[in-house]
Nucleic acid binder design. Structure first.
Lengths: 242, 242
DNA sequence: TCAAAAGTGTTCCTGTTACACCCATGC
DNA sequence: GCATGGGTGTAACAGGAACACTTTTGA
């Protein structure tokens, strides 16, 4: 029974014929990116199987000897070529009928990456990959729409309680760029002045001796987020909150 | 290979010889209870296998045709005899060496139950079950200590952002009882007067025409939490926060 | 009448909100 | 000079923290 399921799955995905991976468990990853288009998600098109041509979250199998976190990291690196990416587990999704060809539980992850770094590598489970705006998501395979919805809720919560939003921006950014990021993710409008005060008061940004270049307005100062400063502050009981 | 692993697991737990469950995936549940002793967790003692006599989280296998949420519900009902229990998934735990006899990923859950309701039912994977205070947890099997630690962090966050703490109290409770609950979970001291104001201002408690009885001091009013009121408020954009 | 907890009121202080306004730069 | 976004300042308000005080009940 289980063997049969595994064979079918392999037909579908066209991979993992050796016994080096766990069966009945997969990983699916919501990859968030941010640029002038706003918040986007990287989706892949299935290259083989009955759902060929349809879009879904990038995902894959877990090898026998790797942790689930490392499996997610590996899948992400294979697809994007990026290594030190912010990655966090969402939760497990396990409705019995979520996958039509057998009982497969999937563990959801979300990643935050800096768009400009990114060049698409043809992933082994995808014939194509494409960024989609957060509010223009098509119908996805399996339960991937609900995983995606869940990930957005999760991102909105997390981004307000931990300084993880910086992972979506270049190393050096202006305060307004940071504010636009929060506005986009949270879907709200913020006050420039109040945002500046709030974020600067936390003292976890490093003010650089550098300014924007080639902008048709007064050049803004660039700032940097320093994880070490944040770690020190949290040790002393500091809680990030926006 | 996988079959071998499964046989070993069965020896260990003394169950699931049919093929009606998924292999390589389990569920472990952190069950929180609250009474005059404070916040406690229900642990079970392994009845058979090499870890006999050691304590761990109650858990079990997922049947082929049930969702993971329902599997957790079922396990909880089998152990405690309770049915409508507040239950939430933590996340999946999947270090490759977390289970010594083979690769098994577990999905963690936490439950909030009202202690007085509770009578221990001999669970099929446990020879004994016992409540442990949150800060007197012994060494547990496998990675159960880290699952438990994670669940406490998670509870502390959740209890401040959603009105789930009520599940640990009787239907009717006084404001001070509620405050003591928060103090215990969050590990902080609160001001009686400020807490009253805050919680009453939310208008999600129903004031009953009833008072405490047989107390050797002024009897306090009893209140009730009404999920419907909360749902209506959240529709209007209300956010619970303590 | 005393202990213990219920319940009310008030003051101080901080952080947030909603603005108005000036500054620098490219076109 | 004007449009655009950068950056500063402030007054009004809301909410939280800290604390004092009165009330009710059983023993």
């Amino acid at each position: 029974m289980i063997y049969k399921v595994e064979k079918k799955i392999n037909k579908e995905s066209g991979k993992a014929t050796e016994r080096s991976v766990m069966n009945s468990i997969t990983i699916d990853c919501v990859i968030f990116g941010f640029n002038k288009n706003g918040l986007e998600v990287l989706l892949v098109q299935h290259g083989v199987g009955i759902r060929k041509g349809e879009w879904g979250l990038p995902g894959g199998w877990i090898r026998e000897k790797e942790s689930i976190d490392n499996a997610a990291k590996r899948l992400l690196a294979d697809l994007t070529g990026l290594n030190n990416v912010y990655l966090e587990q969402l939760k497990a999704f396990g409705k019995p009928d979520r996958f039509p060809l057998g009982r497969v539980i999937t563990i959801g992850y979300f990643a935050l990456i800096m768009r400009d770094d990114y060049t698409i590598q043809p992933g082994f489970t995808a014939s194509d990959a494409k960024w989609y705006k957060i509010n223009e998501i098509p119908n996805l395979i399996y339960d991937h729409n609900s995983i995606l919805d869940y990930s957005i809720d999760c991102l909105r919560n997390r981004v307000r309680q931990a300084p993880i939003g910086f992972n979506l921006l270049p190393d050096k950014f202006t305060l307004l760029e940071l504010m636009r990021l929060y506005e986009e993710i949270l879907g709200i409008e913020m006050d420039k002045s109040n945002f500046r005060r709030k974020i600067l008061k936390m003292k976890l940004l490093v003010e650089l001796n550098e300014k924007q270049k080639k902008v048709s307005h007064r050049a803004a100062k660039l700032y940097e987020f320093d994880q070490k400063i944040y770690d020190k502050l949290t040790e002393k009981g500091f809680n990030f909150e926006i």
